[in-house]
Design a binder for these strands. Structure first.
Lengths: 191, 191
DNA sequence: CTCACTCTAGGACAAACGACCTATTTTTTC
DNA sequence: GAAAAAATAGGTCGTTTGTCCTAGAGTGAG
């Protein structure tokens, strides 16, 4: 097991734990236990907890970037691409019910902690926002593209928060359907 | 300064700090400093941190209950009552930009902490849900009343989360207007 | 084999945490 | 005004936190 591997293992484990338990409530001991290394070994790879957070956010940003890129290449039709976004809620169904949206919950927590990294976390939202906006633009929307992008973000955030709070699987499924319908109506309007 | 007063001061201070910094990140020292009493004095009024949390949630629940009751008495027209709900986002404009929605952020945090009180916190959502549902029912909606109530909750949660993340006052105002418009359209449809 | 470098283990540290305890002051009650 | 009760202050305990340090195991090059 090489060093790079251990470092990546730490980041991945921290990523999961930050999502499940929150950043502040996750200790070095928690992550060390998950990766099965000694606590002291940490400070060879990361000098501080904030550095791990930075690495986790970087990982999420690049993963998001990659995902959006793949969606971009998957089809020529922007309506189909947007469908991928909505279906995140379905693909990550169980996780969202238990832990909410990873982007929203982390950003909210870091803002409450007045943590400097909140800006980095926010960038994941921006990543989605600009991508969504571009899809709507390609669909023929002009000045209201950004508004539509934000509408989609609002919906997904609200749905994730409430599905999490009420722990209601049926609600989540129903709302995803309604979102898809909304997108469908929007597509036919533009034709 | 009587005992009851101090106890209430503690709850109110904890209420604010839990909202601004989060429950887990707020320590006894923080609250004691805010109320200007000794740390030890705490354990005369509250035996544990969870008890303070319980008291804070109880306070929020009764405050919410009172607010909804007042709205109920303020006017005979349910559309006007619903407007009050939307305008929470405007009345608490600055707070929402800085700290998000107090109901959503606390519930989300407690769920991540696997804290038993998450169910109590969730009840505030339920309070709003049933109240909203009743208003829509009085407007003439039937089986879709609950769905409309949830739509409104979804919107307000999503808007609060994103306004907080992007710290965008203009966005918040714009979304409130759009929500009001949505409600307006809904009202005229029913006539 | 040896030296240098990478990686790991585990202990030590001060600070902060929730929790508890006791002594003292303040307030109430009769 | 004395006795009882309520309220407050401040210290202490064990634990956990993030951080740091040092010793040593593993590994590869010359």
């Amino acid at each position: 097991m090489t060093a790079t591997n251990t470092r990546e293992q730490i980041i991945v484990a921290a990523d999961v734990l930050f999502y499940q338990q929150g950043f502040d409530h996750t200790s070095f001991a928690n992550i060390a236990e998950a990766v099965n290394i000694s606590r002291g070994n940490f400070y060879y790879h990361f000098k501080s907890k904030d550095q791990i957070l930075s690495a986790v956010i970087s990982l999420r940003r690049s993963n998001t970037h990659l995902m959006l890129k793949e969606w971009e290449l998957s089809t020529e039709r922007p309506e189909r691409r947007l469908l991928n976004f909505i279906q995140i809620l379905q693909v990550n169904h169980d996780k969202i019910l238990r832990y909410g949206c990873p982007v929203g919950t982390l950003t909210t927590e870091l803002l409450k902690l007045s943590h400097p990294a909140s800006n980095e976390a926010k960038m994941i939202f921006t990543l989605f926002r600009t991508w969504l906006r571009r899809q709507f633009s390609e669909m023929g929307h002009k000045s209201d593209s950004d508004n539509l992008a934000m509408q989609l973000l609002i919906q997904s955030q609200g749905i994730a928060t409430l599905a999490n709070a009420f722990n209601d699987a049926e609600f989540l499924n129903k709302q995803v359907s309604q979102l898809q319908q909304w997108l469908d109506d929007l597509s036919t309007e533009m034709k």
